[in-house]
């Protein structure tokens, strides 16, 4: 449980970090909170020859500009819980953050790290997909904007290339008449979830006008549910009975079947959590309006 040998580099500027990452290519990894990378290194599942410490780069602001909230890659999870821009606009996001790990993880872990690690049932990948987030990745060659829905390729796999690192995430600010909720089921508090679901709603005159649903636990990455989202349009907030549409959605799922949970259980759980998240989102919408 000791990492293989690596060289440590402290970057003083983004340019320097990107230059180092370009130089090291596949052999280099940025490190910030280390909540995922360090355990992987100790297990020697990851063995970067060079670590580029990006903690000194700033990249830790949460700003609102032109209808989007921009979250720097180094923002630590616990920050959201005291951040009005997030609390006021993204109730599902806040629910999700509360479910992340333990106090130490929430204090040290960063959004860039969580997204780049891409655990199949981590909260932040799901939340960024739910909120139509865009992930901004930089390299010495320039920046790429990557929709969260196309960022994750599989368990612990993303479209990031060697020499590239996440610098920010942008979430479009939802309209005033919107709501959301996130629910997850984990064996113990703070564990990676068996399954999770987030729902956001825009609504008018007591009905859903637009819905987003993202869930994890049904595959190697979190996923959106476009058909279900469509089916939820027009749903009455006061009677959020979408059992049939949710069942139609879960029937299409082909979740993993392994020692910790059967495929049947995961499928049913995704449906159940979706129902719960939807019900909470609807009741929050009713309370607000």
């Amino acid at each position: 449980m000791r990492p293989s040998e690596f060289e440590y580099h402290k970057a003083d500027s983004l340019e320097q970090a990107l230059a180092l990452l370009q130089e090291f290519g596949d052999e280099g990894r940025p490190i910030a909170g280390g909540q995922s990378l360090v355990p992987m290194m100790n297990l020697r599942l990851a063995r970067p020859a060079h670590l580029v410490d990006i903690n000194g780069l700033g990249l830790d602001t949460i700003e609102k500009k032109d209808g989007v909230i921009r979250i720097g890659a180094l923002v630590r999870h616990e920050r959201y819980l005291a951040e009005p821009l997030i609390i006021d606009n993204f109730p599902a996001f806040i629910d999700g953050v509360r479910a992340i790990g333990h106090p130490t993880i929430r204090r040290n872990g960063t959004i860039g790290g969580s997204l780049a690690h891409a655990d199949p049932t981590a909260e932040l990948p799901l939340l960024c997909m739910l909120h139509d987030g865009e992930i901004i990745a930089a390299s010495a060659g320039g920046e790429r904007r990557l929709p969260a829905t196309r960022f994750f390729e599989g368990a612990y796999m993303t479209v990031l290339e060697a020499g590239e690192m996440i610098v920010a995430v942008e979430l479009p600010v939802p309209p005033a008449s919107s709501s959301g909720a996130f629910v997850e089921m984990a064996e113990r508090r703070g564990d990676f979830a068996i399954a999770a679901c987030g729902v956001t709603l825009e609504h008018a005159r007591g009905r859903v006008t637009r819905a987003a649903v993202a869930c994890s636990g049904a595959g190697q990455t979190a996923m959106r549910a476009p058909q279900l989202e469509e089916a939820l349009e027009g749903l009455e907030l006061a009677h959020p009975d979408a059992a049939a549409a949710i069942a139609a959605f879960t029937e299409t799922l082909n979740p993993p079947d392994d020692h910790s949970a059967s495929a049947d259980y995961r499928r049913a759980l995704v449906g159940q959590l979706t129902e719960q998240a939807l019900a909470t989102a609807c009741s929050r919408a009713m309370e607000a309006s």
Binding site: M185, E187, I194, S260, A261, S262, D264, Y265, A268
Partner: peptide
């Protein structure tokens, strides 16, 4: 008797 077992 974990969650999976209880659900089943």
């Amino acid at each position: 008797l974990n969650a999976n077992a209880l659900w089943h």
